[in-house]
Design a protein around this nucleic acid. Structure first.
Lengths: 234, 234
DNA sequence: CGCATGCTTCGGCCTGGCGCGAAGGATCAG
DNA sequence: CTGATCCTTCGCGCCAGGCCGAAGCATGCG
């Protein structure tokens, strides 16, 4: 059974603390240099180099050279989804052992809002998902999500175009938020929503991480469009 | 960042060939004894025992004692989903290196039809998914799926009740078939479809594995209900 | 009651692979 | 060209952890 070996090999790649830290550091979908990733994982550059080579060889990472820098990023959204899946199990399945620990990121700002590869996560994302469901623009179940007929107008008005491949409403999925333990919106719709919020200046990235800060315009926008009260970040 | 350590620990649990083999052997959702799993992984019972204890401790497996046997199974469908996610990356992301190998299971019967935790997989499952999309009873996108209005009647007529929580149609998700490399139907709908096919006697399990055999009634049923030609297994 | 079976625990061997230091390209600035 | 970065390759020490043999508990059967 060749696939079982492949399963173990892939999991083992993620199963090293240093590599896991580097992969997690790339979960925001952006590319970073080997040096940055080494620092992030708490190892020396030469050790990181070896890890990065193996991850790239296995197809988990993609590398791009730019002058004397080499930028590494996740090879595809599928990789990020796999990592999300493992994280969900890691945080959720562990029984008594780590019940004492607090879940998810310690940083309050990161709990409030962050990116999860290409979509929004954190309290903000969960609140938006709840609001969209409550307003009937979105349906969300444990295994899928879809924009309603009414929802198409809503998203168009936000500046998110509704492409129509097939019948076109199936491009949304739930993603278990690891600080909130409740689903938020991922998939194509989640990515578009995240992009649009950045475009509108409703949120901006905090330097060097996945954390997002809600701007004053964002606080107003989320209140007016979604009926959600989000405090602007200081 | 505690969660990164949890990520690595969980992945490392899957990242051992013996443990991966045992987990993969439980992907059909049924429970097996430690001895069976040991044989499956090609290790002695005492080694398997240690692995099983760790997997159970970590919350990946659940154990149930029955007389002098102890039955182990995946702790939840979420675990199976995580494993599917890793498999998809393992089979899909590997570049040139393993391009020569044939994908997926060698066994022809297993490629034809099998279970994937709680739903159908293999050529049969992909054909059914295609047929359902073509007949307009199902919409399927990369990130989600939904039963159409017309589809509700179709599934009711098959004997699959359409529960209506919320608006009720969001309980379906695509799952990348690892032998076919195309999506089939998973989620609540996929599980119900699989259960119903077993109930109707359209497929039956081959002893001791995930492989499914299509019965003569199944061949007729799939042709009449789905317009899909599936040869009955010998 | 004693034996067989299934599983676990214990102790010791051994290998895989992680990590670092040192040295060897590659790229850019001046 | 020379030096400064950034990254990689090489070689070695080291240790976690996988594996098994042997022995120890449980359960069920005759």
């Amino acid at each position: 059974m060749p696939s079982i070996n492949a399963l173990a090999e892939t999991a083992a790649l993620v199963g090293d603390p240093a590599r896991a830290a580097m992969l997690a550091g790339l979960m925001d979908g952006r590319a970073r240099t080997a040096g940055e990733l080494a620092a992030l994982a708490g190892i020396t550059p030469q050790t990181a180099s070896g890890h990065l080579a193996r991850l790239t060889e296995a197809g988990l990472l993609a590398m791009e050279r730019q002058g004397r820098h080499r930028y590494h990023r996740l090879a595809s959204a599928g990789i990020a989804r796999m990592l999300e899946g493992i994280m969900a199990v890691a945080e959720g399945a562990a029984p008594a052992a780590r019940q004492a620990r607090s879940f998810g990121p310690r940083d309050a700002a990161m709990r409030a809002a962050r990116t999860c590869y290409d979509h929004l996560a954190g309290q903000l994302a969960v609140a938006l998902a709840d609001a969209m469901v409550a307003r009937g623009v979105l349906e969300l179940g444990p295994d899928g999500g879809a924009v309603t007929a009414a929802g198409e107008a809503f998203f168009e008005s936000l500046g998110i175009p509704m492409a129509h491949p097939g019948r076109g409403r199936i491009f949304c999925r739930p993603c278990l938020d690891w600080s909130e333990r409740r689903p938020h919106v991922a998939g194509v719709l989640g990515a578009a929503l995240c992009t649009r919020c950045l475009e509108l200046g409703w949120v901006r990235r905090r330097a060097g991480g996945r954390t997002l800060l809600v701007t004053p315009e964002g606080a107003r926008g989320f209140r007016e469009a979604f009926g959600v009260e989000v405090p602007a970040a200081p």
